[in-house]
Write a protein that binds this DNA or RNA. Structure first.
Lengths: 129, 129
DNA sequence: TAATGTTGATTACAGTCGTAATCCATCGAG
DNA sequence: CTCGATGGATTACGACTGTAATCAACATTA
């Protein structure tokens, strides 16, 4: 449940394309990614293969075309990634992360505002012990 | 400045030992780590070598003994790691991370409390734009 | 002093990752 | 029908990682 998500940095580029819009053909994915990187089409197709091999991307053959789609929602991915990160580096407590982040980065006013709203709503609704 | 910190997961175990207390001899580090892992001493020494090679751990020879110490403070490491993480996955905004984290993990009451205190103090002191 | 242990240095070795290229079957353009 | 383009499958290859083992120099112990 709190498992590893076997998606590497480069592979995440493919996931991002698919999270943006899916299903897509490999050609679509290549186009999307080549819009902001200089990766070879071959490279991108390799990433797609690896992701399907790892079960993080699904595909359906329709006739001879392959349509690719994410096998995991972006939200779930982010949640699991975040959970793991906070576990690994902050003993599971998110406040110290925010503190560390704030300390040198200086959160933007907007960020602080959003955080306040967030914890207000958390305080209000039932928070788990 | 917002560079990569070349410390792998396994290597971080060594850093943790040194952040806990330093300087330490390699024997000390081995002992500390073997307290809660089953890694071979050889493995741990390899990690130490790699860290010194990468400049993340410094050492001084005193006579024939080597004393090892972190070349980077834990705080700085955590800050840079966190910054990178938030950049990579949340476009640099920390609030959405907390939100994502909260959504399923349910922050503990304690965590929420600390967050509130934190943003209160942030609101009070000069926050950067 | 001879055997053994400690420790840094060097080497090993398979798996993953970034970054492709090659192979092969099929499809669309002439 | 022939030839290049397309796309999935397979192979490549060096760097980095996890996980050590071997080597060599010095130290300790019997």
């Amino acid at each position: 449940m709190t498992d590893n998500l076997p998606i590497t940095d480069a592979e995440r580029e493919v996931m991002d394309a698919l999270w943006e819009r899916s299903p897509l053909t490999s050609g679509d994915i290549v186009q999307a990614i080549q819009g902001h990187t200089d990766w070879q089409a071959k490279t991108i197709r390799t990433l797609i293969s690896r992701l399907t091999a790892k079960g993080m991307v699904q595909y359906r053959k329709q006739g001879r075309r392959y349509y690719y789609a994410p096998a995991i929602a972006r939200e779930e991915f982010l949640q699991r990634k975040s959970h793991k990160f906070v576990q690994t580096f902050f003993k599971g407590k998110v406040a110290p992360l925010v503190a560390a982040f704030a300390e040198q980065e200086s959160l933007s006013r907007e960020d602080v505002e959003q955080l306040r709203k967030l914890i207000d709503s958390l305080d209000a609704s039932g928070d788990k012990s």
